[in-house]
Nucleic acid binder design. Structure first.
Lengths: 231, 231
DNA sequence: AGGTAAGGATTGTTCAACAATCCTTCAATA
DNA sequence: TATTGAAGGATTGTTGAACAATCCTTACCT
């Protein structure tokens, strides 16, 4: 065997290994999840086992395993002997999700002073990313920045399990967001709120920041609910 | 076809339907979970697919689905091409779990006034159940009462998703509890704490109740950690 | 119109086979 | 002796097929 040319080679190798290491079902689940969060697979749609497994060139069993993974993430619902469908969160689901977020994120933001400097910087980075997106009129970035912001808030608590749960909740919410047509109209209101929260945090006014965060939840939830129950 | 004799027949049928409807995998998962929480399947143990599927008289596929359910509950860990193992929570895991519980349960208890009367009664019932267990020297009941208490506290927030997450966290903790030999010694300290918290809540001293809850977390966590990192 | 029976389509479950991977053992070599 | 490498067995990963169970549609009959 010949020795490979000295490159910075181990880094990319580790990445490859990581993606190879993952089970096929997980990669399929990733693919489907992307399609769902992009809005290509719209809520309510039924996913046909035979058609999809043939299209992806995998067996039905493997696809079913991918379905199970996404069902656990609450992105799909499984109805016995009927099949799997893309979740369409209703008003109750949205209320439940926001109740959970209120508890988790408000509890996390209160740890601002105790959090690591790294975690605090994560919040600042998320806001900065959103500002840059707004300046360049990239409203898709503003949307992801908003999600990043709330994940950063959660990370202040320093619990991986909490982070995962919030990630699940946010993914589920994105399925509800599809009813919002214009993302700009939806997100442009939230960026200044995030900025305000960060300013309060940096001024060590944690209690006020929490109040502002609660206001955000109220407006965002009612935003969604009126759309869902409206026309 | 002959008509069935008039019985109260639909009730039992619905039950049957429900239990039939429950996938076989879930029943298998229940069986395995019981064995794990009884301490029969000790942390670190590998679960062999072939042996277990044959012992239970089910197919390997069904067993794998049961494994997935338990993996999602974080009672099992799955290592690619190596198999599934019973989780053995270490010090970092315990710290992570308690960080999450602090955020969730403290956030939930603060909703005492806003919660439904039903939810508040759930907390009282859990404490009462523990008291009864202590009076009759049934320390197993005191243990389950403690778990019930914390689930009831969580339920004050009114979010099913939060309830499920806490249930997962508590199940994971029970795997760590197996290192505690004597359950009585472990739980008898916590019952009076729960009583004190309830008394404060019923006196509408929510902030003090939260402080007491935090103290509980501190003592319980250090209890566990010293055992885990000690001998 | 309403109920019913047949049929096709889809999902549920199991099994057997093979590929891919990991672990152990053991021998060879520096 | 310690390390490397290869062979082998054991376990998991994935697939395809088969059949049962269920749902949905259609067409028919009263």
């Amino acid at each position: 065997m010949t020795t490979a040319p000295s490159h910075d080679w181990l880094g990319t190798l580790a990445d490859d290994r990581l993606s190879q290491d993952r089970a096929r079902a997980e990669r399929v689940a990733d693919k489907l999840r992307d399609r769902m969060l992009d809005g290509e697979l719209t809520p309510g749609l039924q996913l046909n086992e035979k058609a999809i497994s043939e299209a992806l060139g995998i067996s039905r069993n493997t696809l079913r395993e991918a379905f199970r993974l996404l069902t656990h993430e609450r992105l799909l619902v499984h109805e016995h002997s009927r099949g799997v469908f893309v979740c369409e969160p209703g008003v109750e689901e949205v209320a439940d999700i926001y109740a959970a977020r209120r508890v988790i994120e408000c509890g996390a933001i209160r740890r601002w002073a105790d959090a690591t400097e790294e975690a605090r910087q994560g919040v600042r980075d998320a806001v900065a990313f959103g500002v840059r997106g707004a300046e360049t009129d990239n409203w898709l970035d503003v949307g992801t920045a908003n999600i990043r912001f709330h994940r950063a808030i959660t990370a202040l608590a320093g619990s991986l399990r909490l982070d995962e749960e919030v990630q699940r909740l946010l993914a589920e919410l994105r399925l509800a967001f599809y009813v919002m047509g214009n993302p700009r109209e939806f997100y442009q209101d939230y960026l200044p709120m995030n900025q305000a929260i960060l300013a309060l945090l940096d001024a060590d006014s944690v209690a006020e920041a929490e109040q502002e965060l609660l206001r955000y939840f109220d407006t965002a939830e009612s935003h969604l609910v009126t759309r869902l129950s409206g026309p």
